[in-house]
Design a protein around this nucleic acid. Structure first.
Length: 548
RNA sequence: GCGCCUGUAGCUCAACGGGAUAGAGCAACGGACUUCUAAUCCGUAGGUUGCAGGUUCGAGUCCUGCCAGGCGCGCCA
């Protein structure tokens, strides 16, 4: 059993004897900042003082009157206003090294999710332009949260929603058509709100290369329709390739056009009408979103008879739940946060428990170049593409960087700095620790020292060794915390701490030394660190190099 | 005007869901390679947590008001 589980269970049991029922999982355990406060602190006594009308120290004394299992706890101390400070026993820490070696890749995983099915939809960038850096951030964050969910026992599906229908797509087709005709010296008016980016010209040239003048002499409408489809497929393939190169795998690429083909949106419309949730006004059809907590009603079908994006999106979300997911998580860009209440309202109107549907906003990325914010606008064609950024800083560094902040906070990404200081980037610090360990293991092998299956861990007695093991001990909790609160940055922070404690140990002590028994024990410890580093890096899809 | 996000060391960020004396990295300064990788380590310095109230044993964290920055408030997506 893990020590935190042991402590929670034991404390809950003793509380019960005091007449207090507390759920085992809800008993908070803290990690004290100061070493003299022990390794793990419980604050229950402070919380219960009011309820029990007793001084917190007295409660703490009562909870610690009996001894704790020495296999877990070295010492207990009631401190300050009523903290219970535990010191982890060396026996437990030494046993943990063997435990990690035995568990290998499984160390850190848990079954918190109990196999429930979760869908995560993220990136879902419009296929009307190249992926930008916000997509790069969303891809990293969504992917890692998916990995974390898997690690804590959910069954996860990753989905990318493609808006391959509607007005914006038509505008892309018309833009491409205009550029295409220009290549043949024919002037076709450029759509007013068309896409001005250089990639539109590139698409036109590619199409000329592949299809020649085939589209020149057909009616404009037919040409635009065909070029729309061709350009669309090219853009989608581009996006798929970019995600693959960025190590993000999507289980499903879901197309809006499929919903439209199946008239899924019209079914929703009929249902809403039938149930009195939709009404006509000013020639448009509205959804009574205000009945479900939104600030006003929303249009489902425009006066021109065109279904809104919103209507199709409702059908999409119904489709998601029809596929049997217990939980559905959407990750949207910051410009969509005003859209959340109406989507939640719609999901509720469909009769789905809103608890099962969560929308998360991934905040914007400010790209800095030369100390100045790079302004970006898709329509104006001013854009820093995800691909450019990756090329400049690399996948490992880019992913790590995007994961280092909470998604709810805007992120400043200084390109010059990331490029210039790429050797100082924290990702290299973590990777270096892994490479260094691999080197030690190679060195030991050359000396005829294989990684032993067992070792005398009682020989581990240096403070730096225990510091490392205590860090290893935290790993499972870091994963479950990062998953539960959707905070991948806990993982990157943790990996840096673990790497630091190992580097410190390395500088003070030799792993492969005179004493073969001690060397064996330290090799095991070193391998345990490598396992945890590798497990952590795998979760964020950053490579764990064997040499640097 | 209303709503959402953000404000912590010169810079980039932590602080495990209210806990004890707010911590790292970068930049600055001073040290450590005849040793398993110096992409490393050790040390010094750096703070009125935007401001003002409130809640309580205890607030960077929760509440209210203000200040500053970003985003949003379409029969666009």
């Amino acid at each position: 059993m893990r020590i935190d589980d042991y402590l929670r269970q034991t404390l809950a049991e003793r509380l019960r004897r005091l007449g207090v029922e507390r759920e085992v999982d809800s008993l908070p355990l803290d990690k004290p900042k100061l070493p003299e406060h022990g390794d793990i602190a419980a604050t229950v006594a402070l919380e219960l003082a009011r309820e029990l009308r007793k001084p917190p120290r007295a409660i703490a004394e009562a909870l610690t009157a009996e001894p704790f299992d020495p296999n877990y706890v070295e010492s207990v101390e009631v401190a300050g206003p009523g903290f219970i400070n535990f010191r982890v026993s060396q026996r437990y820490l030494r046993r943990l090294v063997a435990e990690i070696l035995a568990q290998g890749e499984a160390y850190g995983r848990s079954n918190w999710g109990r196999g429930r099915r979760v869908q995560l939809e993220f990136v879902s960038a419009n296929p009307t332009g190249p992926l930008n850096v916000v997509s790069a951030r969303a891809a990293a964050v969504g992917d890692v949260i998916a990995n974390l969910f898997e690690a804590v026992g959910y069954r996860v599906e990753r989905e990318y929603y493609i808006n391959d229908a509607g007005r914006q797509v038509r505008l892309l087709g018309m833009s491409v058509s205009s550029r295409y005709m220009a290549l043949f010296g024919i002037d076709e008016p450029f759509p007013e709100e068309g896409y001005h980016g250089e990639y539109v010209r590139d698409l036109a040239m590619e199409i000329r290369q592949e299809y020649g003048d085939r589209f020149v002499h057909m009616p404009a409408e037919e040409r635009q329709q065909q070029l729309t489809q061709i350009a669309l497929e090219k853009m989608i393939r581009q996006h798929q390739e970019a995600m693959r190169a960025y190590r993000v795998h999507f289980d499903v690429w879901f197309r809006e056009s499929e919903l439209r083909k199946a008239n899924a949106h019209l079914e929703v419309l009929e249902e809403f009408k039938r149930r009195g949730l939709a009404y006509e006004q000013d020639g448009a059809i509205w959804f009574k979103a205000s009945q479900f907590g939104d600030e006003k009603d929303r249009v489902l079908v425009t006066r021109e008879g065109e279904p809104t994006y919103f209507l199709v999106d409702i059908a999409y979300h119904r489709n998601k739940f029809e596929r049997g997911f217990d939980l559905v998580y959407d990750f949207w860009g910051p410009d969509h946060h005003g859209y959340i209440p109406r989507m939640k309202a719609a999901v509720q109107a469909l009769g789905i428990d809103p608890q099962r549907f969560q929308v998360n906003i991934i905040q914007q990325v400010n790209l800095l170049r030369g100390g100045e914010v790079v302004k970006m606008s898709k329509r104006a064609g001013q854009i820093i593409e995800m691909a450019e950024l990756i090329e400049e800083v690399g996948v490992d560094a880019a992913r790590f960087f995007f994961l280092m902040r909470k998604m709810s906070a805007p992120l400043d990404f200084d390109i010059d700095l990331a490029k210039q200081q790429s050797e100082e980037n924290p990702v290299y610090y973590v990777q270096y620790a892994h490479a260094r360990i691999c080197n030690i293991l190679r060195f030991a092998e050359e000396r005829g020292l294989q990684l032993p299956a067992q070792a005398n861990f009682d020989l581990l007695r240096e403070p730096e060794e225990f510091e490392v093991i205590k860090n290893l001990m935290d790993f499972p909790e870091v994963i479950s915390g990062a998953a539960r609160f959707l905070e991948p940055h806990r993982l990157t922070t943790y990996l840096q701490e673990l790497a630091a404690s190992f580097h410190r140990f390395y500088h003070r002590h030799r792993v492969v030394g005179e004493d073969p028994e001690l060397s064996a024990a330290r090799l095991c410890l070193t391998e345990a660190v490598r396992i945890v580093l590798a497990n952590g890096l795998r979760l964020i899809h950053v490579s764990a190099p064997e040499r640097m």
